[in-house]
């Protein structure tokens, strides 16, 4: 019997993995991949709750649809920005873009 906790733990682990990726990656594109992972973890969470606890309204599913939509939009836009930065600075590594320094 697959319980709700199965899915929740899976989503938690996925989220932590994405978190790790965001923190340690240098390349903006890799960071983006990690963010996608985090979003996917949240989607699982939403859908699991919707399926187990909210079978009538399944609001979580609707939310997951929106999450996927926004994730797609985000990837499109963020990659545009990455391209732009790359053209300006010849690198897509975020730790080399340090003009905010003291």
């Amino acid at each position: 019997m697959i319980s709700l906790t199965h899915y929740l733990v899976l989503s938690g682990v996925l989220f932590a993995l994405g978190f790790y990726g965001v923190l340690v990656r240098r390349s903006a594109i890799l960071i983006l991949i990690a963010v996608e992972l985090m979003l996917a973890a949240v989607s699982i969470n939403f859908v699991a709750f919707a399926s187990y606890l909210d079978a009538k309204l399944f609001t979580g599913v609707i939310f997951a649809i929106f999450v996927i939509t926004i994730a797609a939009a985000e990837v499109g836009l963020a990659l545009g920005i990455v391209l732009r930065i790359y053209r300006e600075r010849s690198t897509a590594n975020v730790d080399e873009a340090s003009t905010l320094k003291w």
Partner: peptide, 21 residues
């Protein structure tokens, strides 16, 4: 491909995962 703060990031993410799970 990984930044210099990798150990810290790993620690933070690990704590996060433990808390979440």
């Amino acid at each position: 491909v990984d930044g210099s703060q990798k150990p810290f990031g790993f620690g933070v993410a690990l704590v996060m995962g433990v808390v979440l799970v």
